[in-house]
């Protein structure tokens, strides 16, 4: 087996670092995109965004239950994917309702961004209450369909390796759906008149008004896009792991970190930031002992876990990176600000 040491090490890395980080990164990238678009167009840091993610996911779960009880399924795919479009509509409508009844007042007043941010804290409370009231604070799994694409055991047997590679179907679904969503979004922003006018509005509000761009329409489109992205992100995350309102709330911090690291307001930055944060969280908390055992001769084998940071600090990492970025390059990787 000596010759396979290198391959074993790589499979190990792929199984525990690369595949999970890719799927978590895709989920985070979508969520961050929604945050950054709100920031770019509506010009405030939306503290309620993680709870919109909870709300959208909850709506999906409810529709999934409805479909399941009606005997509708998507075959090998999770039923939640069928429920997703309906949940997006509900989420977008609720977003628009909140915008009409809450945010639009402050927009007309031309309030400071910080005021809108505090307002979003109020919305955050309300959303948390609504979600917990309807579906409760507990952990929920709503995955159905085929669970694995590649199973570790089959992989081991097939290739005759010591290490196995598992690819869950949710991981593949996540990456595919996220890619489709991102490509559609970039196409929309770069190539369509409406998308361009959104960028124009985000870049220079007064001039957009002078050009006859209707701000209210832009606002509506922004909330709809944000709902699509955040609900999709939440559903992918929930399928991959599970849905729990408090866990989702905690994703607010990695989302902000990803947005700022990438350059807040920049969609490309959001995607880059999402993957940077996801890969950092996982690479820095993975214990590399076994990896080095494969690669190094016995005499050099490490004694410790070879772990940079304990997994306890997984989500503190996003903030350590954030702090470093704020000190070294506050504008983020892609010089951010606008969409």
């Amino acid at each position: 087996m000596e010759d396979f040491e290198f391959i074993n090490a790589m499979v190990l890395l792929a199984n525990f670092v690369i595949v999970p980080a890719l799927s978590y990164g895709s989920q985070l990238a979508l969520a961050t995109l929604s945050l950054t678009i709100i920031y770019g167009v509506l010009r405030f840091s939306n503290f309620a965004q993680a709870d919109w993610m909870s709300f959208g996911t909850m709506a999906t779960i409810l529709f999934t239950w409805l479909f399941q009880s009606a005997g509708i399924s998507a075959g090998i795919l999770p039923t939640a994917l069928l429920a997703l479009p309906f949940a997006i509509i509900v989420t977008a409508l609720f977003c628009l309702l909140i915008d009409r009844s809450v945010y639009s007042f402050y927009r007309k007043q031309k309030s400071q961004p910080i005021v809108l941010m505090i307002v979003s804290v109020g919305v955050m409370f309300i959303l948390q209450a609504v979600v917990r009231f309807i579906i409760g604070p507990n952990d929920r799994k709503f995955f159905d369909g085929e669970k694995y694409i590649v199973h570790a055991l089959d992989f081991k047997n097939y290739f005759g390796l010591e290490e196995g590679l598992t690819i869950k179907s949710t991981q593949l679904i996540t990456v595919v759906v996220a890619l489709v969503a991102m490509i559609s979004l970039f196409y929309f922003l770069q190539k369509t008149k409406l998308g361009k006018s959104m960028r124009a509005y985000s870049n220079n509000e007064d001039l957009a008004l002078l050009s006859g761009i209707n701000p209210e329409k832009i606002v509506i489109v922004t909330w709809i896009i944000s709902s699509i992205l955040i609900t999709t992100a939440g559903v992918l995350y929930g399928l991959d792991k599970s849905f729990k309102p408090f866990t989702y709330f905690n994703l607010l911090l990695p989302m902000f970190a990803a947005a700022i690291v990438g350059g807040i307001g920049s969609p490309i930055g959001a995607v880059i930031g999402g993957y940077v944060i996801a890969f950092s969280e996982i690479t820095l908390t993975y214990a590399y002992k076994k990896f080095f055992v494969y690669l190094l001769p016995e005499s050099l084998e490490p004694s410790g876990l070879m772990q940079v940071l304990s997994t306890d600090y997984k989500f503190a990492i996003s903030f350590i990176i954030l702090v470093i970025v704020l000190i070294v390059r506050p504008t983020g990787i892609v010089r951010g600000k606008i969409i």
Partner: peptide, 8 residues
């Protein structure tokens, strides 16, 4: 001032 869309 601010008479163009600088990012477009």
């Amino acid at each position: 001032t601010m008479n163009i869309f600088s990012e477009l």
